[in-house]
């Protein structure tokens, strides 16, 4: 993390500054891949017994039918969980969460939201997240933890019945799992659009700087 010792002045002049360390990039893209597999197979599983009055178009689902989708879902879950655990452990151990995501203040979020909506939010220093980013990135980590826990609650309502009860029972856990998915998809849409609007942020997540 030598990049963190580089002063602001140097940062603007040095192209070699690492914005996203290698481990972040590795878990980010692994997570993106696992998430897409989980969501697409999850939609196919949802279609077998929809919670609401709609189903997902088969053109955007994975697995072909319920059985195939379940195979994908219960395979990709390992990738998602192991990768997610690595991310959480490294995020805490390296101090990245603390340095990048904290503090989150209401005033900061409000003023940065206003700045973003009026197009005045600066993206000059990609090593520093603005308050809207901090809130969304911290929030999506919480949602990520919730979707895994609610998924485990649905998968093992007998063996992990206390976890299932924590979500208000099997049926309630299904809804929690669904809404977490919806939150992640909404996040992904905003995330991808903004990454494309600020291409150097996308570049940083690919080559590191």
């Amino acid at each position: 993390m030598s990049a963190l010792t580089v002063s602001d002045e140097q940062a603007t002049t040095t192209k070699a500054k690492v914005i996203q360390p290698a481990w972040v990039r590795a878990v980010h893209w692994t997570n993106a891949f696992a998430m897409v597999l989980m969501i697409m197979s999850g939609w196919q599983i949802y279609n077998a017994s929809p919670l609401f009055g709609f189903t997902f178009s088969r053109s955007i689902t994975l697995g072909g039918w319920l059985g195939g989708a379940l195979l994908w879902h219960f395979a990709a879950m390992w990738l998602l969980m192991v990768n997610g655990l690595i991310y959480l452990v490294l995020g805490f151990v390296t101090g990245r969460f603390r340095k990048k995501l904290l503090p989150i203040t209401p005033e900061g979020v409000i003023s940065d939201t206003k700045a973003a909506l009026t197009g005045k939010l600066s993206h000059d220093d990609l090593t520093k997240y603005n308050y809207v980013q901090k809130l969304l990135y911290a929030g999506i980590i919480v949602v990520g933890i919730l979707i895994v826990l609610s998924g485990l609650a649905i998968w093992k309502p007998v063996q992990l019945q206390y976890l299932t009860a924590l979500f208000g029972g099997y049926e309630a856990a299904r809804y929690v799992h669904f809404f977490c998915m919806a939150a992640i998809v909404a996040f992904m849409v905003v995330h991808v659009v903004l990454a494309l609007l600020v291409p150097k942020s996308l570049r940083a997540m690919i080559i590191g700087r």
Binding site: N47, R58, G63, G64, W65, L66, G67, G68, L71
Partner: peptide, 11 residues
């Protein structure tokens, strides 16, 4: 046979 795009096998 599990992986048939466009065909819901159960149905």
């Amino acid at each position: 046979n599990l992986l048939i795009p466009g065909v819901d096998k159960a149905l």
